[in-house]
Design a protein around this nucleic acid. Structure first.
Length: 113
DNA sequence: TTGTTGACTCTGA
DNA sequence: CTCAGAGCCAACA
């Protein structure tokens, strides 16, 4: 059952995002460095992500700790709702405290304090 | 093949 | 801290 549509690179992104536990978030750049690509490529993979997928794309945010202004429009709003349901805390400017919620891929990235 | 676009990040002011 | 510009890689026509 090989999936032909998406590139192997995309699968790497999705697989990595699936490893994110509930209540935690990560940034595009972090994933990009782990898979060996730039943040733009990671965001591109997310954009190609179909609705109803098993990938918690909602836990993927930008380095600013905020949801990205998707082209869909209401997508960023949905992301905020989903993250709040996970137990995350949003700032007055809809910003998340990465220092408390950013997941460092403990299983893949050792150390990190 | 080239050119454009995109859910980003970095550096400078 | 915020705002603005440039760089980056990958997919699509």
């Amino acid at each position: 059952m090989s999936q032909k549509s998406p590139s192997p690179l995309y699968q790497s992104v999705y697989t990595l995002v699936r490893q994110i536990p509930p209540g935690y978030v990560t940034t595009y750049g972090r994933i990009g460095q782990l898979i060996g690509c730039t943040a733009r490529t990671v965001g591109f993979a997310m954009a190609a992500l179909p609705s109803g997928s098993d990938v918690p794309w909602q836990r993927v945010i930008n380095s600013l700790g905020k949801v990205s202004p998707r082209t869909d429009g209401e997508g960023n709003l949905l992301q905020r709702i989903l993250l709040e349901a996970e137990g995350l805390r949003f700032d007055r400017n809809q910003r998340i405290d990465l220092a408390a919620y950013e997941w460092g891929f403990s299983d893949l990235e050792e150390g990190s304090f």
